[in-house]
C-alpha cells in the first residue's frame, strides 16, 4: 500500500530540507571565514621591559604596549608613570609638552596632567593607567 503525499507538501518538505542543509553548509564555511577575519588576540599578558636610562626625568618615552601606543615618564626623580598614549576623546595619540609638563592631544586640544588626569578640552576621562615597577635598571610595565 502506498501513501500519496500531495505535491505541494512534498515540495515544501524538500525546500525546507534544502534550506536547512544550505544553512548548515553556510555555517560550516562561514565560521572559519569569521575566525580568519577576526582580530588576532595579542599574545600579551607579559610585561614590557624598558631600560631606566631611556626614561629621562621631565621627558616622555613612547613605546608599543601590546599593539597600542603607550608612554612612560618620570615626573619626579625616582617616580615613574606609565599611561596609554591614546586620547580618550577620539583615539588620537597624545604629545608630551615638556615646557608645560602636560600631554596635549593634537586633534582637538585635549590636555592631560603627567598622571593622565584631564586638565581641559573634550576628553571625557583620564588616560588609562598602566602599572610600572622598577626592577634593577629595568622598568617593568604591565
Amino acid at each position: 500500500m502506498t501513501t500519496q503525499v500531495p505535491p505541494k507538501q512534498r515540495r515544501n518538505f524538500l525546500f525546507t530540507m534544502l534550506a536547512g542543509f544550505g544553512a548548515l553548509l553556510a555555517a560550516a564555511a562561514g565560521w572559519p571565514l569569521f575566525r580568519f577575519l577576526s582580530p588576532i588576540a595579542a599574545t600579551g599578558g607579559s610585561q614590557v621591559a624598558i631600560p631606566r636610562s631611556e626614561v629621562v626625568s621631565g621627558k616622555a618615552h613612547f613605546f608599543d604596549y601590546h599593539g597600542k601606543p603607550a608612554v612612560v615618564l618620570q615626573p619626579a626623580a625616582g617616580k615613574f608613570v606609565a599611561l596609554s598614549a591614546v586620547c580618550t576623546h577620539l583615539g588620537c595619540v597624545v604629545a608630551w609638552k615638556e615646557q608645560a609638563s602636560e600631554f596635549e592631544c593634537p586633534c582637538h586640544g585635549g590636555r592631560f596632567s603627567p598622571e593622565g588626569q584631564v586638565l581641559g578640552g573634550p576628553p571625557p576621562k583620564p588616560l588609562e593607567s598602566i602599572a610600572v615597577v622598577l626592577d634593577g635598571d629595568q622598568l617593568k610595565i604591565g
Binding site: P32, L33, R35, F36, S38, I40
Partner: peptide, 9 residues
C-alpha cells in the same frame, strides 16, 4: 600556524 583557519584557506 598562527592565523585561525589560515591553514585551511
Amino acid at each position: 600556524n598562527d592565523v585561525p583557519f589560515g591553514w585551511l584557506f
